[in-house]
Design a protein around this nucleic acid. Structure first.
Lengths: 212, 212
DNA sequence: GCAAGAAGTAACTAACTAGTGCGTTACCGG
DNA sequence: CCGGTAACGCACTAGTTAGTTACTTCTTGC
């Protein structure tokens, strides 16, 4: 029996922290806060459990960090859409498409948000960064609406927050409830054609909602 | 110190079973499958933990029963709407109002569905009762749509499943994410006026979606 | 009125789980 | 090159948790 000499890993604090965060995001998304296991997160991160407590304090603090990161990621991506470079109708359609694509590409985001709300939002209560990022997002949509009204293509008086909620809702609900949906409605919610149909339906819904 | 003589409770299998089920529904809704505690469910049901294993088999089986019951309840309530007695527009508005009111009156339903989907729907996979209840529900909406098209008030070609998903989504998302929503958008999602506004917005959304 | 099964209880267990105490090792500024 | 600090790892613990064993008590059909 030959013993393979294990190299002690080169020390890299930020890389270890990042690996833990990535593993935690995946585990919390998959199993929720209560279902996730600290030992498993450490194992998947190829880090010692002790490091989780060193960098993040504890399971709940790690969860909080994962949540804030996830929200900052989507809010950051939204800012890069450059909706102000597009005519109002195209800008709004682009937002609907982006939201749908983001949920599809980042399925952990949805379950993390569900977990955050299962815990009544207590892990996000005092995050000013998130609040200001959201504020910027709402005013971005407000601007698109204003331009649309000025151009006469959108009807006036639409609340941008309600519109945002609806844009998120019609994509989010379909995807988060795809398992029960697939069972109850006896159609494969994740079939590429079904996904395409849903996106088309959603764009139509939003357009009919705002068009003058 | 006077010892109060405890009456042994009259034996009532179905009542005990029902108490366990009610307590389980509340606990699973509050904390999820992983977060709920069997001991706590027994305690809240004023039942011995052994009875849970006696009546339901185990924690996961209890969860499954809670989920099926919850779905059968909403599907049953929908059947009592008698949409076929109303003109198409009123029928559809009634469905939107009902869905919203049901979520508001049964907040556990939403978190149970979220939990079911976190576990990828595995607890509902082979429930034929749910599938047939859903089928009846879809055809009920289909009929309303058909009548609306025949009357010339609804445009043709609307998929009743997509419509149902949207009607559910715009209420469900607002309510399930009310905690993060309240924090991020800095408005009280549960304020009575806010709830009223949301319902109005949703009715408007659905009507614009279907009207010819 | 009595046998037998059903309802109910208490105490237990084996496995797990978040968190820690404490020692070791690499790296970096001086 | 060396001393201190930050990164890292092992092994443990105290408390939980789902599930069970072994028993008592009530109810009901005959």
């Amino acid at each position: 029996m030959r013993v393979v000499e294990e190299q002690p890993r080169a020390r890299d604090a930020s890389a270890t922290r990042a690996r833990i965060l990535a593993a935690a995001k995946s585990e919390f998304a998959r199993l929720g806060l209560a279902g996730a296991r600290v030992d498993e997160i450490a194992k998947r991160a190829c880090a010692n459990k002790r490091m989780i407590y060193h960098y993040f304090g504890g399971k709940e603090d790690l969860f909080r960090t994962v949540l804030v990161d996830a929200y900052l990621d989507i809010r950051g991506a939204e800012q890069e859409l450059e909706l102000d470079h597009l005519p109002p109708r195209e800008a709004l359609e682009r937002l609907v498409r982006f939201t749908w694509a983001y949920y599809l590409d980042n399925p952990e985001f949805i379950t993390l948000v569900n977990s955050a709300n299962l815990h009544r939002g207590k892990h996000l209560k005092e995050s000013d960064r998130l609040r200001s990022a959201s504020r910027r997002f709402v005013s971005m949509v407000q601007e698109v609406l204003d331009r649309g009204v000025a151009d006469g293509v959108f009807r006036p008086g639409i609340d941008p927050v309600q519109l945002n909620i609806t844009i998120a809702a019609i994509g989010y609900y379909y995807l988060t409830n795809r398992f029960t949906g697939t069972i109850l409605f006896e159609r494969d919610f994740m079939d590429p054609k079904a996904l395409e149909n849903r996106l088309d339906f959603n764009i139509d819904t939003v357009m009919r909602l705002v068009l003058a």
